[in-house]
Amino acid sequence: MNRFSHIDLRVNRLALALPFYEKLLPALGFTRTFHSADWRVFAGEGELPSAPYFAITEDANHRPCANLIGFWATDREEVDRIAALVKEAGGKLNDGPRQFPISPTYYAVYFEDPCGNKYEVVHRLN
């Protein structure tokens, strides 16, 4: 059972970050939107509130830290596609996509959104 529920993310400049997330999140399966004045919500399949979702709000005082949010990829090609999309959408690739020595099948890309929040997309068999 995947126990993921949601992410409430702060960015320090929504106008800078939103175009990035409008490209990235649908590619990760968050294809439906439920936006309000203060939150931009991208949801996966299922009915809210039980559907997984990714919510973004602006906090001018937010500063990114070393926290990292990771997503599974179905295969190495998806990792490569997400890496290309990150570059195209204005994100910063920090490492990869490549094989990492974490396990013999750990293939990942590490990146940041335009506000410095950190992510990983990984495919691994074991």
Rank of each mutant, 00 (worst) to 15 (best):
F30P: 00
F30M: 11
T31Q: 15
T31S: 13
R32D: 08
R32F: 05
T33A: 08
T33V: 11
T33S: 11
F34S: 08
H35K: 09
H35Y: 09
H35R: 07
S36T: 15
S36Q: 11
S36I: 01
A37R: 12
D38S: 09
D38N: 15
W39E: 07
W39L: 08
R40A: 03
R40M: 05
V41F: 01
F42P: 00
A43Y: 01
A43M: 12
A43R: 00
G44V: 03
G44W: 00
G44F: 03
G44M: 12
E45P: 04
E45Y: 09
E45I: 04
G46L: 06
G46V: 07
G46A: 03
G46S: 04
L48W: 03
L48P: 11
P49R: 02
P49D: 06
P49K: 03
P49A: 07
S50C: 09
S50N: 11
A51H: 10
P52V: 10
P52T: 13
Y53R: 01
Y53M: 12
Y53G: 00
Y53T: 03
Y53I: 02
Y53A: 02
F54G: 08
A55F: 08
A55Q: 09
A55W: 15
A55K: 09
A55N: 07
I56H: 04
I56Y: 03
I56F: 13
T57I: 03
E58Y: 13
E58M: 06
D59Q: 02
D59T: 03
A60T: 14
A60I: 12
A60G: 06
N61G: 03
H62D: 04
R63E: 07
R63N: 05
C65Y: 05
C65P: 01
C65R: 05
A66S: 10
N67E: 06
N67T: 04
L68I: 15
L68G: 07
I69Q: 14
I69D: 15
G70R: 14
F71N: 01
F71W: 15
W72S: 09
W72L: 11
A73C: 14
A73T: 01
T74P: 04
T74E: 15
D75V: 13
R76T: 03
R76A: 01
R76C: 04
E78Q: 15
E78M: 15
E78Y: 07
E78I: 04
V79M: 05
D80P: 08
R81M: 05
R81S: 06
I82K: 00
I82L: 11
A83H: 02
K87L: 13
K87I: 09
E88H: 12
E88K: 11
A89Y: 10
A89K: 08
A89L: 08
A89T: 04
G90I: 14
G90H: 12
G91T: 12
G91V: 13
G91C: 08
K92I: 14
K92D: 12
L93M: 01
N94H: 02
D95H: 05
D95S: 14
D95Y: 08
G96D: 11
P97K: 13
P97M: 13
Q99A: 10
F100R: 14
P101M: 10
I102H: 14
I102N: 03
I102D: 12
I102R: 10
P104L: 09
P104S: 12
T105G: 07
T105L: 04
T105K: 12
Y106C: 13
Y106G: 05
Y107M: 05
Y107R: 02
Y107E: 06
A108H: 11
A108G: 14
